[in-house]
Write a protein that binds this DNA or RNA. Structure first.
Lengths: 308, 308
DNA sequence: TATTCACTTCAGGTATTTCTAATGTAATGC
DNA sequence: GCATTACATTAGAAATACCTGAAGTGAATA
C-alpha cells in the first residue's frame, strides 16, 4: 500500500499485525482448517489472509494441501522474527499498563541457587507478597550463576535479578540487599573431618583438593592459596563434592546447616575461615518499571526484617 | 481476559499502530495543526485519532489548545515506550528483508576511536565497499570506549562492533580482526624527550606521570609499574596529554606517526616498550544477520589485504 | 469586545476490510 | 473411479474505518 504523504512507506507490520497473529496461530495449530476454531473464522478467510500476508512479504511461508502442512525455511525465519516482535509488543503493553498504574504483564526474575534455604532472606515470603500485590503479573523465575545473571540483565533476559556482587556492576542499576557468610566445610569421609581446628594449619588446607564455584575469584581466599581441583556453578554441586569426602570448599552456613547438623559436614575453623558475599538487587538498564520495583522492594523489606 | 475466540483481546497495539505513528508525528511537529501537512490529513481527523488513541490507552497523552502543546508525564512515558516499539518493528522489517535476501534497514556499528588513521585496517575502504554492496542500509557509526562497546553489543545498541579484546568476551560471538601495536611516547617538552633510550631505565619510567586509557589493565605494562596520573577514554585525550609534555603514555604507532614525524612526539625504547591490542569484530547475541555479516566480512577482508 | 488560534464535535459520504457461501482444485485412500 | 481432505478462488453483503467540511468552544491577544 503506497500512501500519498506523511508517514512514509508503512513498514510491513503496520497493517499486518493481525495477519502475523493469524499466521502464528496457523503454525501453532499446524494447518489452516485446524486453526478455524481457535481463530474464529472460516477456512476461506484464513486462506485469503495467508495469501495476503505472503504477497505483502513477498515470501512463501508455508506449504499446505492434502500433502500436509509445513513451514518453508523462510517461513521458519519469519516465524522467529515474528515472535520477537510479539515480545516487543507485549513489552509495550506492559509499559502502558505501568503508566496507567496497573501491574500487568510478565516479570522475569533471576537469582542464584540456594536462596530458598536462606532464612535471612525469606524469598518465598517476598514472592508470596508480590503475587498478592500484583496478581495479574506472571512471574518467571530463573536460576543461574552470577555472571549469567549479570549478562541476562544486560541482554534483557531479566528485568530484576538477585546476585552476589564482587566488583561494581558496570551499567547496571542496583541496590544492596543482604550479605551471606560462607564457611569452609569438609565432608564426613574427608581426612580433616576428625582433626580439631587447632591442628589444622593454612599449609594443610592448601594441600587439600578444593572445590570452588566457577564465579569465585581466582585469588587466594582468607589468605590461603587453595588448590582448585573441582568447580561447579551451583551450591548443590559444591555440596555433592564435599559429601564425597574428597574435597574441601565454601558453602553458606544456611545451606550447610542441615547436613552439618546430621554430622555429614563440618565447618573448619569457622572463627577465621569465612568470607561474605554481598547480594544486590539489580535492574536491567532502562527497565526499572513499577513491577520490577515492587518485587525489589518486597525482597528488600524481607531482608531488613530478617536482619533486624 | 475474556476472549470470544482465538486471538484474545487485541493487545493495544494490534490495531493502533497507525494511531501511535500519528501521535509520534504530532509530538515531532509539536502540535496538531502543525502535523497536518506532514501527516496528510485534516486537523479534524488528527483530533479524532488522538482522542481515539487516548480512549484506547485510557490515558491523557498531551495537553493542547491555544495555551500551547505539551506532553503530559504519562504522554512522555508512552512516547518513550512507543519509540522502543517502533525500533522493534524496524528490526522485524530488517529481518524480513534479510529473509528475502535484501539488505535493508539500519546497521548500528560501533568502534573505538583512532581507527581512521589505522592504515592496517582501511575502515574507510570497508565502509565504502559496504555502502556499495548494500546501498539501502543506513549505517550508523558510533565511537565509544571498549567497555561501552561490549556493553552496547549486549544491550543491542550495536549489531556489530570493532573493539580490542583483552579477556574473552562473555556471551559474544566474535572473530579476530587484526592487532595493533602500541608504543610508549613522550612529548617534546617532556624531560625524557632528549635523553637517549640507553639512558632511560624502568625505574626512571616508573617515576614519570603516566597517562593511561580508562580501559587499560591496571596491572603493570611491559614489566613497569607506571604511575597513573591521568586517564582518558580516547586516543585523542592521550595525545593531548602527551603533547602537554607532562606525561608519558602509550599510543598506537599509526596514530602517533604524524606528530612523531613533526618532532612533537617521540617513542621511548620502541624495541622493548610496546604491547599489542588484539581487535575483534563482535556481534550482538542473536543478531548476526546478513547485513552485519557483510560489514564484518568487508572489514576482515581489508585487514587481510593490508596484513598481506 | 472582537478576533484569532488551536482544537473539538458532528454529520455524512467514501473506501476498505472482513466475512460468508458457493464453487473449484489437487492429492490421497479405498 | 469415487469419496474425502485440505486448501484456493470468487462474488457480494455487512461492518468498520477513515476522512472532510462545517459549526462550535474556549483561551489568548489586540
Amino acid at each position: 500500500m503506497q500512501q500519498k504523504s506523511g508517514l512514509g512507506r508503512p513498514s510491513f507490520t503496520d497493517i499486518d499485525l493481525k495477519l502475523l497473529r493469524i499466521f502464528a496461530e496457523i503454525v501453532r495449530c499446524n494447518g489452516f482448517s485446524a486453526a478455524q476454531i481457535s481463530l474464529g473464522m472460516s477456512q476461506a478467510t484464513i486462506s485469503q489472509q495467508m495469501r495476503h500476508l505472503e504477497e505483502r512479504l513477498g515470501l512463501r511461508l508455508c506449504e499446505r494441501g492434502r500433502a500436509g502442512f509445513y513451514l518453508t525455511e523462510q517461513g521458519r525465519q519469519v516465524h522467529g522474527a515474528m515472535l520477537d516482535l510479539f515480545g516487543a509488543i507485549e513489552s509495550f503493553g506492559t509499559a502502558i499498563g505501568d503508566v496507567r498504574g496497573e501491574l500487568t504483564g510478565r516479570l522475569n526474575f533471576g537469582t542464584v541457587d540456594a536462596m530458598v534455604t536462606n532464612r535471612a532472606l525469606g524469598l518465598d515470603r517476598a514472592i508470596g507478597a508480590f503475587h498478592q500485590s500484583a496478581p495479574k503479573v506472571s512471574l518467571d523465575i530463573d536460576i543461574a550463576p552470577p555472571q549469567a545473571l549479570a549478562q541476562g540483565l544486560l541482554t534483557r533476559r531479566y528485568e530484576v535479578a538477585l546476585l552476589p556482587v564482587r566488583d561494581a556492576l558496570p551499567g547496571l542499576d542496583s541496590r544492596r540487599a543482604f550479605s551471606e557468610r560462607q564457611f569452609l566445610y569438609c565432608g564426613q569421609k574427608h581426612p580433616l573431618f576428625g582433626r580439631p581446628d587447632g591442628g589444622i594449619t593454612d599449609a594443610d588446607l592448601a594441600r587439600q583438593a578444593f572445590a570452588g564455584r566457577t564465579y569465585m575469584p581466582d585469588e587466594r581466599i582468607c589468605g590461603i592459596d587453595f588448590q582448585w581441583s573441582a568447580q561447579t556453578a551451583h551450591m548443590e554441586g559444591t555440596l555433592t563434592l564435599l559429601l564425597s569426602g574428597a574435597f574441601i570448599g565454601f558453602l553458606p552456613d544456611h545451606f550447610a546447616a542441615i547436613p552439618a547438623r546430621e554430622g555429614q559436614l563440618r565447618a573448619i575453623a569457622p572463627e577465621r575461615l569465612y568470607f561474605d558475599d554481598i547480594f544486590h538487587i539489580a535492574f536491567s538498564p532502562g527497565r526499572r518499571n513499577r513491577t520490577a520495583l515492587l518485587l525489589a522492594d518486597l525482597i528488600a523489606r524481607e531482608c531488613d526484617m530478617a536482619g533486624a
